[in-house]
Design a protein around this nucleic acid. Structure first.
Lengths: 214, 214, 214, 214
DNA sequence: GATGAATGAGAGTTCATTCAT
DNA sequence: TATGAATGAACTCTCATTCAT
């Protein structure tokens, strides 16, 4: 399973953090959680699909929930961290003259990441409402930081006269909803459709820009 | 619990379709499903919260999944049917001269409905990915019908020169994503925030209109 | 269901002992018990097939076991009583000159009765091992009485020089086994076979006579 | 429980096919099924009597019915196979000059087997009518094979002029009924009686021989 | 480190029985 | 008398977790 192999690479910096069995467990868990949901997946099923003994799972992960967190946790950080740290810094440092460029760069980046990690993304948004630990993680990594930075960026472009004068929070919600909507439609709702990603992404950007540009 | 009482009224036309115990079961089930998810809620818990014997649940609903469907099924129809049948007909009959009016009317309507039925809505979007029966219901009631009608409406306004010349599917996705994003943020992600619904809704409409108007 | 209507007539002397609902309950119970066994038949199933409310069953029969006993109990008496009381008396009063005649009469009689009441017979032999009450009934009505009488009859014919000089108990077991074997094969094991009852019965009698006649 | 230890030995060729816990489960199940019937025995009861956790039963046997089949299935084969394969071959190969010898050998053999496995035999005949799987097994292992072979043997002795000229099917039914009657009386109906097995068996053979010999 | 048999709490479901109507 | 909603105990079966090997 190609997606899953890449994915592991994305989530764990150093391959040797994981034994071969751990990799197999994580891959089996991701597939099962995405397909049936965390609560409806049994550890015995994961063990069987991973080709390991049930006990082996619990040798590496104290509980079933531990396994979930260890899968989804890194995702939260990987998904968010670059957004916050890399891209945003750049913007504020005037790497992108126009908001078009910035938005396009960011959107492409995020969409590519989610497309590569569809299953993980599905698990993440399915389980966040029910796992306080995940919610906490999410808040910690996005919560204030991202919103603060995004607010700064928006104000930055508003001052440049490029953005409509709605409150930043509204704009953030507008942009985030559109991106989220695109990603969800693309990957979860209608994955079987024959999308031309480049074109559709460009259209989504146009839609957003129409919505927020002055 | 006020929301839940309204809700039952919304879902079941005639109060006497339900016995007192059935009402209590459904209310308890909705609360529990929304809070912990369908799979993580036990029927014994529902029974306890409803103040009935566990057997009573199974007298009215053959299985636990039956209970879920009988809760969420009507929601699908109630949420969608009016959208398709009433609003859309009106538009096509020129009830709304400008797209602004139409969009505003529809958005208000949908948002009000979801706000009144937050819990049900949460259950619906959480469980749809895992319950083929729900997916089927959803497709049957939204699937083609809504998209066809929406396409007609968009073409209608495009011909009037009021709408940007993107493909209808893109516009639909844009609008739907924004509405969905608004509803989810408003009700699920940040319900604790102090929203001024009127204002925020108007802003969302502005955002959408910006995005799709010529 | 023809068999069952006759049957009720056989079991209950006076039709007006039973209300219409009781008849329907008993018929439904017999069918279900015979098909799936007493323990695997639910009262709700009986009620449904009988077209009455579940409560109605318990109005007439205090418990499920009561229902069983009230069905099978009369059978025990009806099946046995004539054997003991009528036939045997006749034999001892020299109604049948030869043992051939006696055996033939008795066998025909028993076989006809069981054939008419196949389902009841099946229930009886299936449940006797597990229902002490039935065992008790059986012992009371067959137990000593039948065996004593049969012993007398056998000794009677042995004295006449018509019967082999095995111990009566052995002869009784031989005869009973053969009859039981015939009935079970005919009605339970191979009911779908195309039997010529007259012929097969005569052969069975020949077999028994061969076995016991001097 | 001595009978049960032998029995396990009979059913499973190699002791190490079964773990200690499995043995305990099977023994407890046999006792309970024989005493109260399959349907009226709960798995929790079996677990308690076996001194294992209830879950352990389901680790070894997927369902309760699986447990039943795995107990009774081997019995069907063990009980029947030798009858068909060993004994009958011998007869046809003239090992037994007279039918007396053959019948005596066979009867002794079967009776001994059933006596040793009374409980299993009881379960088998109690559950066959309600378990299609068992019926199938039975048919497959006895069904045609035994009856065909038996027919051959009977014709063999009829040609030798030793047997009465009734149709083989009638003779088979006669013999089988007598044996079945003997076994059932001996082991199930009147087990508490003080039987002299040798003597009674000889008498049963005499009875059968009387019935079928020319 | 890996195994998988064993556990026992708890899951969903069934059922004989009761009782207000 | 007949009903059928309600009950709660008991049922079969699943599961995350433990631990001796």
């Amino acid at each position: 399973m190609n997606e899953l192999d890449n994915l592991i690479g994305d989530l764990y910096e150093y391959d040797d953090e994981l034994t071969a069995k751990q990799r197999k467990i994580i891959i089996a868990a991701i597939e099962a959680f995405a397909e049936k949901g965390y609560a409806s997946t049994s550890t015995s099923e994961i063990a069987k699909n991973a080709g390991v003994a049930e006990g082996t799972i619990f040798r590496h992960y104290k509980t079933k929930k531990d396994l979930l967190i260890s899968i989804v946790g890194p995702m939260v950080q990987k998904f968010i961290a670059p957004f916050v740290i890399r891209d945003m810094e750049k913007v504020l440092n005037q790497d992108h003259e126009s908001i078009d460029d910035f938005l396009r760069a960011m959107l492409k980046n995020r969409i590519a990441f989610v497309s590569k990690n569809k299953l993980l993304f599905k698990i993440l948004i399915q389980e966040i409402p029910f796992q306080p630990e995940l919610k906490e993680l999410f808040k910690k990594h996005i919560g204030m930081k991202v919103i603060e930075k995004a607010t700064l960026i928006i104000q930055h472009y508003q001052e440049k006269g490029q953005l409509v004068d709605l409150p930043p929070a509204t704009i953030i919600r507008g942009i985030a909803s559109s991106i989220f909507g695109f990603i969800v439609t693309r990957n979860l709702l209608l994955p079987e459709l024959d999308w031309d990603d480049e074109v559709e992404m460009e259209r989504t950007i146009q839609f957003i820009l129409h919505g927020i540009k002055k």
